[in-house]
Structures are given as C-alpha cells and as structure tokens.
Design a protein around this nucleic acid. Structure first.
Length: 578
RNA sequence: GCACCCGUAGCUCAGCUGGAUAGAGCAUUGCCCUCCGAAGGCAAAGGCCGCAGGUUCGAAUCCUGUCGGGUGCGCCA
C-alpha cells in the first residue's frame, strides 16, 4: 500500500516517538501528526506531539518539544526545525524533498490513484432514488452530485464502489402516475375531455408518453376498467420515467450502475421472507403504539399492528410493519431492500438522503443493525434554497412552480451546478443564487479555478513558444531552481493534495476537494501576479532557460492537480476561457 | 411535544476530527495592466465563533443546558 506525502512523515514521526518515549504505542500514536500551519510564516509543517505527550510523560511541553526537535533535525526532509512557546514544533521542508513530490506528480502514472485506505472493500452507495413519477427537479440535484462525487472519491481511495438507485415502483404514487398517463393516452386517441386535476400529475412530460402508449397499445385500453389497464400502463410509464431520469442524471454527469426495482423485490416474495425471518428472530410483535406526543391527531384510535422492535436498536419507538388493515407499511419493503443489499455481500452501505427523509434515518439504521454487522451510514443533504431576483423561489409541485434539473442545467451549466453544490458540507444549509451563478461573476468559483488551470496552460505554451527547445531538468536542478518563497508555497500546496484526498475520503467530505482547489488556485494566481512586479518570478524568464523549464514543471504539476481535482468533482478543466 | 441539521465578518460560507493572533469569497475603501490572460493580484476595514456552564495545559471544535432558524415526525409514501 503506497503512502502519501503526509502519511510518510506521520509514520516516521510515530516510529521515532516510539523509540524515544515508552508511553507511545501503535494505538495512541495516531494522535501525533504533522499538519500545515494556518500561518505560513510558522514554516511548512507543524507538529503537535510535544503538547500531546506533556501530560502522559509528565514533562513540560517545551522541554519535550526541544527533545523531539533535536531528533527531527536529523531528518533529511527538513531544512529547519524550531520550537515555539506552547510547545509547537515548526519545520521547514527542504526544497529537494518538495520537488521530489512534484516529480512524482509529473511522472508516476499511479500518483493520483495510489491511495489504498479502502483496501478493496466493497461499498454500496445508494443515492437519488427519486420516485419514478417525473423528471428530476432541483431538489434532487444535491444528492445526485454528492452521491456521484462521493462514489468517485471512495473509488479513488481504494474502495470497490457500487452506485445504486432504488426505484420505488410500488404504491399509490405510481398508480396515480399510471392513471395520469392513461388520461394522456386517451387524449392521444382523440379524447379531448381529459382533465388532470389535483392528485393526478398534470406535467407536460406525460403527453409524449400518452402518444407512445397509443402507438404501442392502439385502442386496447381505451374502454376497459382500471383493473385491466393499470398494470400494463404503469409498467410502460415507469420505464419511460426511468429513461427520463437517467437522461437527467447523465446531463449532470451522474452515472449509476445498479437500478433495483422495489416491484421486482416484492414479486420475488422477499418481503414475506423478511417478515418470516423477523418473526423467527423475535424482532417483531403484535402491539399498539402510543399516540405521538404533543400533537395527538383527533382521529387517533389505538389499533393493533405488527411492530418491529426498532427501539431495541436505537430508534425512538417501535415501527409498524403490517398495518391494522393487513397491508405492509412503506418501511417493510424498504427493510427487505436493505436485507437484499446485505445479502449481496457489501462491506459497507452508504445511503444519501434528502433532508426530507431525516426522520427516517434512525429506524433504517435500527433495521440494519438488526440484520447485519455491516455498517450502514446515512448521509443527509440539506435543503438548497434557490434564490431568484433576490428572493427564495417557492416551489410547489401542485402549482407547477418547481424548477426542473434540466432547467437548472440549461440556466447555469453543469459545471456550475456541480461545483457550487459540492463546495459545501452536505449537511449544511445553502443558497443557490440563480442570477449570480449565471453572471459568471467572482461569486462563482468555477471560473476562478478554471482560470488558474487556463493560466498554467497559457504560461507553459508561452514558454514553449519563447524557447524552441526547453532543456531537460534533473532532480537536482529542479531543487536548485525552485527556491523563491512563491515557488515554495506552491510546492507545499501541491504536496498537500494526496493527504487531503485521503482525509476527505475517510471523513466522507467531498467539499474539502473544492476548498482545496480554491486554495491552490489562489496560490497560483498569487504566484502569477508576483511575476508582474518582478520579472525573475515569472514562469518565462528569458535569459534563464533552465529556470523557465523548472517553472514549467511546477505549473505542469499545478495544472495536473487542478485537473485531477476538478475531474473528481465532475467539473471540466479548460485550457482557455472564452 | 420529539428527532435530526444549522447558528462564525454586513451577506454566502470555511475552519483539516482539540492547537498558535478564528479564515476565504462577495459587498465597501485605496492601490497594481508599455510586462507569461486584470475573469487576476496587493492592502485597509470588518468578530463576546447565538447565550450560559462544564471537561483540560488549550474549546469555534467535545459534554450539558438554553435561545433562535430549518427539516421531518401519525396506520402517507
């Protein structure tokens, strides 16, 4: 398993501390690490070990820091090690150590995929799973891009990822869909009296489905009772909706591998099997629930149901599986579905939920815990407020005022949608200002990062034009040439990338990639601008071909890291801005 | 009433699993294009990190309470 830049340093630190201090073991050593200090004037790296050890060793942190620093001074990686007041150990890296990392970025074909914290474990990530009753709308966008980017990130950090969509193709919603489609079908056959009020779906997207149904079935279902037309119309229409949804996802750059049908699961008898299993394992009982506190419904009456002992597994109350009328609750097939996922031998399940399903998390985790040791993580994406003309857009399905995903992409572009939604923690509330995002203003980080990438490209091309032949640069020359403070900062920033990815992966925090890219872009822009005042800080230095070649290597590294990070987020890296 | 999420600069948000003087972008105010792309850079200003306790060498970060905002919660799906 290959280690990244910071892992190597931290591992060596741990080994060294174990040699010096008897109290340091493999277990607690993970707390000691190097990290980039927030203030660059402190150096390239800060180490927290002395302060962490002060108590267990019963020695003043400053004394320990001096001891540790003395050892660190022997490391080949460091040019300078110093100790500062509370007990920080600050270190400055040798340029050769940083340029060696740059060389790996440029020459190692596996550099961007060598992280193996996942160790090939099989993880299933379920996301979107919107009801197949129509095109996706903006409410689905965040979960879609987050699930997609998380899948890419976990793949990159060594997991074997399956991306899954669960199709809720059973129940009232899809029956309503079928009735609506049937109305459009009659319309297509010439009946102009059809209406599509309240419970029916009035969206225009069903009109072509009606036409297709007419072409497919002719007049077969024109004058037959619902019991005859419902199933075939429903099947056809759901397939049409899935097709629309998949194409919506594709427009966002989101791909999923497995589409699991609830109906197929139900028809296989898996739900009954699950109920039998739960009965055999004493996970259910017949009982009556208390009315919900503080908000007792007027028509509440206690009725006996089949309940899952979910409160034994961390839920607040037990949950109904079979309702008093003898039918399953929504939860029952869903439990079955997760049991099916467990049966497919994943090592880890992740569900991406919208904020409107937060209340569902505990019971599902309870069900998972009752069935398997395999961990289930449920990540919720908070509501995105869409702002138009300075005011939040009120969206209502009934009034047809919700913005579709297609409209959003058409308005601002896929890259803007993705980077903006991926730029914040998934569980943070956020705004999406449609005007700002359309303006391509500085509020929009896509252009800032793409601009940095384009500048790298531009400078490298310029260097190639200026010097017909750029000299080869040896490792020694690279280290000897990239010695200014500006070079140094860029090199340090590049070296952070691999460790940042590893941490983002283990924290399931995709937004860190976006933050990092912004930081790297900022360093690049700063680097660039210094060349305006001082010609020797430019990429192209006319009287120094070797320096120019070295700087080109540096910018190649920046360009590659920017492109890789943007690629992880599904955002296009461009060589030129319009 | 209960559960989950969020309260950090005027606004939108970071803060790397407990570290140094809490950071970015936008907006405001000043600079920097005869010079690799100014869609950029530099600088100024802006803060009781909602509030109150606790844990410890050390808290925006962890715990408890509390107040505000959001989302959800019934035998709906």
């Amino acid at each position: 398993m290959a280690e990244d830049f910071y892992q190597v340093l931290d591992r060596d630190l741990m080994l060294m501390l174990q040699q010096i201090f008897s109290g340091v073991t493999a277990e607690n050593a993970g707390r000691f690490h190097f990290s980039p200090p927030y203030d660059a004037s402190h150096g390239d790296l800060a180490c927290n070990a002395a302060m962490m050890l002060a108590k267990s060793e019963d020695v003043a942190a400053m004394v320990l820091a001096e001891t540790i620093a003395e050892h660190l001074r022997n490391w080949s990686a460091f040019a300078e090690v110093s100790v500062v007041k509370p007990g920080f150990i600050n270190a400055r890296l040798k340029v050769s150590f940083l340029t060696a990392e740059l060389a790996r970025i440029l020459s190692d074909p596996d550099y961007f995929s060598h992280c193996d914290v996942g160790a090939g474990k099989r993880v299933n990530i379920e996301y979107v799973s919107a009801n197949p009753t129509g095109p996706l709308h903006v409410g689905h966008a965040r979960g879609a891009v987050f699930g997609d980017a998380l899948s890419v990130l976990l793949t990159r950090t060594g997991y074997d990822v399956t991306r899954e969509y669960y199709i809720n193709d059973v129940g009232v919603q899809v029956d309503v869909l079928a009735r609506s489609a049937h109305g459009r079908y009659l319309e297509a056959l010439g009946d102009k009296t059809q209406t599509f009020d309240a419970p029916l779906y009035s969206g225009e997207y069903l009109i072509p489905v009606g036409g297709a149904l007419a072409a497919r079935f002719g007049t077969t279902y024109q004058n037959v009772p619902e019991s005859e037309y419902l199933a075939p119309i429903r099947e056809y229409t759901i397939a049409a909706m899935i097709k629309i949804i998949r194409s919506d996802l594709q427009a966002l750059g989101v791909v999923q591998d497995v589409f699991t049908s609830e109906r197929a699961l139900v028809e296989s008898g898996a739900v009954e099997q699950t109920l039998t299993y739960m009965q055999e394992h004493n996970l259910v009982y017949r009982g009556v629930l208390e009315p919900p506190r503080g908000k007792t419904p007027e028509d509440w009456e206690p009725r006996e149901q089949l309940l899952f002992r979910s409160s034994d597994f961390g839920d607040d109350i037990d949950r109904p599986l079979i309702k008093s009328d003898g039918t399953w609750s929504y939860f029952t097939p869903d439990i079955t579905y997760h049991r099916d996922k467990f049966a497919r031998n994943f090592d880890w399940l992740i569900n991406i939920f919208g904020a409107d399903h937060i209340g569902y998390v505990k019971r599902l985790k309870a069900a998972a815990a009752a069935f398997s040791e395999v961990p289930l993580d449920i990540l919720c994406c908070q509501i995105v407020r869409f702002i138009k003309n300075g005011a939040p857009v009120r969206m209502s399905k009934r009034q047809g005022t919700f913005i579709t995903l297609r409209e959003l992409i058409a308005a601002v572009g896929k890259d803007v949608v993705r980077l903006h939604l991926l730029g914040r923690k998934n569980d943070a509330h956020m705004d999406f200002d449609l005007e700002l995002m359309r303006q391509q203003s500085l509020d929009n980080p896509v252009f800032y990062i793409q601009y940095a990438h384009a500048r790298c490209h531009s400078a490298i091309s310029h260097a190639k034009a200026e010097f017909s032949i750029l000299p080869e640069v040896t490792a020694e020359e690279l280290a000897a040439k990239l010695i200014t403070a500006a070079d140094h900062r860029l090199l340090c920033k590049l070296a952070e990338y691999s460790g940042m990815l590893r941490r983002a992966g283990s924290a399931l925090e995709v937004h860190r990639i976006a933050l990092y890219l912004r930081e790297l872009a900022k360093e690049l822009h700063g680097f660039w601008s210094q060349g305006k005042d001082q010609a020797e800080l430019r990429v192209v230095v006319r009287d120094d071909a070797l320096l120019t070649a070295a700087r080109c290597q540096l910018l190649c590294g920046v360009k590659q890291v920017l492109a890789d990070g943007l690629g992880l987020l599904g955002v296009t890296a461009v060589d030129e801005l319009r």
